[in-house]
């Protein structure tokens, strides 16, 4: 096997590990730690209604900078967030991980996920494609962008106040 391919294998393993860890933080409700995975200029984006929208003129389910993400966490901890009382329980599978582009200090990663949410006796299956734009900062992977394309983003969605 050629040298570049070997490097690619190593990166893929490392990047996959990062995605699994990210999913675990969300699953375990360790949201303060999850927010720390973003770079200071990070973006968490869940488009609404279709995959290809202009977020300046069209609707997103979430279009959050890091300040906004911190607000979400603060709210989840407020004790009066009824839509998460009781909280959602989720389990998440991440797979089909591919590195789609490499940059000087990072890479772009495409993956698929299935998240099952259980709350008030009802389960909701959320699934789709995640696009991560990763940067290596001080030897650690950080998310510059996480974009989540839910396959059901044009269907009636009840409560997405937990994070996908």
């Amino acid at each position: 096997m050629s040298q570049p391919a070997m490097e690619a294998d190593i990166d893929l393993h490392e990047v996959s590990e990062f995605l699994y860890r990210e999913a675990a933080l969300l699953e375990e409700g360790r949201l303060e730690d999850w927010v720390k995975l973003f770079t200071p200029d990070g973006l968490y984006w869940v488009p609404s209604n279709s995959f290809d929208i202009d977020p300046e003129r069209e609707l997103s389910i979430a279009y959050d900078n890091v300040d906004r993400l911190r607000e979400r966490v603060s709210r989840l901890r407020s004790g009066s967030f009824w839509a998460q009382d009781p909280p959602s329980r989720t389990t998440r599978m991440v797979g089909n991980v591919r590195i789609t582009a490499r940059t000087e200090d990072g890479c772009e990663v495409e993956s698929r996920f299935i998240a099952v949410e259980l709350r008030r006796g009802a389960t909701q299956v959320l699934s789709g494609k995640a696009l991560h734009e990763l940067r290596r900062v001080d030897g650690q992977w950080r998310m510059k962008k996480k974009i989540v394309h839910l396959i059901q983003n044009n269907e009636p969605i009840g409560n997405l106040t937990f994070l996908v």
């Binding site: 003129r57 997103s60 389910i61 979430a62 279009y63 009824w82 969605i157 009840g158 409560n159």
Partner: peptide
């Protein structure tokens, strides 16, 4: 107009700070 979109997302969407509590 972009600020209007962001304001909407802030309170009225399924992951927002407002409407999900009403739905609940």
């Amino acid at each position: 107009n972009t600020a209007r979109i962001r304001a909407h997302e802030d309170f009225y969407g399924p992951a927002s700070l407002g409407a999900p509590d009403d739905m609940e």
